[in-house]
Design a protein around this nucleic acid. Structure first.
Length: 298
DNA sequence: CTCGATCCCTGGACGC
DNA sequence: TGCGTCCAGGGATCGA
């Protein structure tokens, strides 16, 4: 699942592969994940990809001004979120299209930029000027750019659970389930602990561990646990360094206590019940039993 | 402000 | 082998 390190990996690959290339046209398949499909078709052709950036979990393809100069359009970009299963990669035209290819953009070098996404949990949008800047402002700090003070302020002033805060893109942009669990395990913090109840040393440790993990994961080109591939079609390797994520029942790599999985903020959360102590009053969350008998009681 | 529930979607795992 | 069911999860949205 593409989180910050995976998206950074894709952004670097695209920066190397498609910067300077002009988009010749746009062909769309299913469009229910695209903000305004007609806008893509109308605005992208003729524009050159001038830079590829990562913004949280988004890829930001900065584009050149249109051919008929629109003086007031401002900054122009194609925003792409990979959701759970999205891939954005350049391919030779001769390479057969993968199933679930929903956006194809032929480039001026004989290749095509293709967006493939079986589940279509991703998002794509052409945005310009004020609309673009407003959209970007909705998100919180980049965990690799934020200083300790800002990080601490965003966490300690909130009563929400730390896991929910880490996943909240308006608090921090780019962290998802894997790196949230991994950093909490390293910092020995229970995922259901409230942000406001964390002590300063805990916040500082979490800040350092989160950055450390994200940087290491970027070096290893991300985690490929579902189908993630970078812009070169290569999987990442950080999944081999996961300490808790996906290890339910297996011994904690610090203390051998079996790793547990609970639901926090509606997401699976893996943690060590011994290393990451439960906050007072915290109760184990539902095992998610079948809900067919809803009317049975009540 | 914070919570859980629900929905979106498909493929893979699993039970029988 | 095949069918049904559950589950993965980022994000939007809604009601409590």
């Amino acid at each position: 699942m593409p989180e910050l390190p995976e998206v950074e990996t894709v952004a670097r690959g695209l920066q190397r592969e498609v910067v300077g290339r002009r988009i010749l046209s746009v062909t769309l398949g299913k469009t229910d994940f695209i903000d305004n499909p007609e806008m893509l078709e109308g605005e992208l052709p003729g524009r050159t990809i001038v830079r590829v950036e990562r913004y949280g979990k988004f890829l930001l393809l900065r584009l050149s001004p249109g051919e008929e100069a629109k003086p007031d359009e401002g900054e122009v970009a194609l925003l792409a979120h990979l959701g759970m299963t999205g891939l954005l990669l350049p391919r030779e035209v001769s390479v057969p299209q993968a199933k679930h290819t929903h956006v194809v953009m032929p480039l001026d070098d004989g290749r095509e930029l293709r967006y493939v996404d079986p589940r279509r949990f991703g998002r794509m949008a052409y945005l310009a000027g004020e609309v673009l800047s407003r959209e970007l402002q909705r998100f919180g700090a980049d965990p690799l750019e934020a200083g300790l003070e800002e990080f601490a302020r965003r966490i300690q002033q909130r009563k929400a659970r730390i896991k929910a805060l880490l996943l909240d893109q308006s608090v921090l942009r780019g962290v998802g389930n894997i790196y949230a669990d991994e950093s909490l395990w390293r910092a020995k913090i229970h995922p259901a602990q409230l942000g406001a109840r964390l002590k300063r040393p805990q916040v500082q440790l979490l800040y350092r561990k989160l950055q450390e993990i994200l940087k290491k994961a970027i070096v290893l080109r991300g985690s490929s646990i579902s189908d993630f591939l970078d812009a070169d079609g290569m999987p990442g390797e950080y999944q081999q360094h996961h300490r808790v994520y996906g290890r339910e029942g297996q011994p904690c790599l610090r203390c051998k206590t079996p790793i547990r999985r609970v639901s926090v903020a509606g997401r699976s959360s893996y943690y060590c019940p011994d290393c990451q102590k439960m906050p007072r009053g915290w109760k184990k969350l539902r095992k998610r039993k079948s809900r067919q008998k809803r009317g049975a009681r009540h």
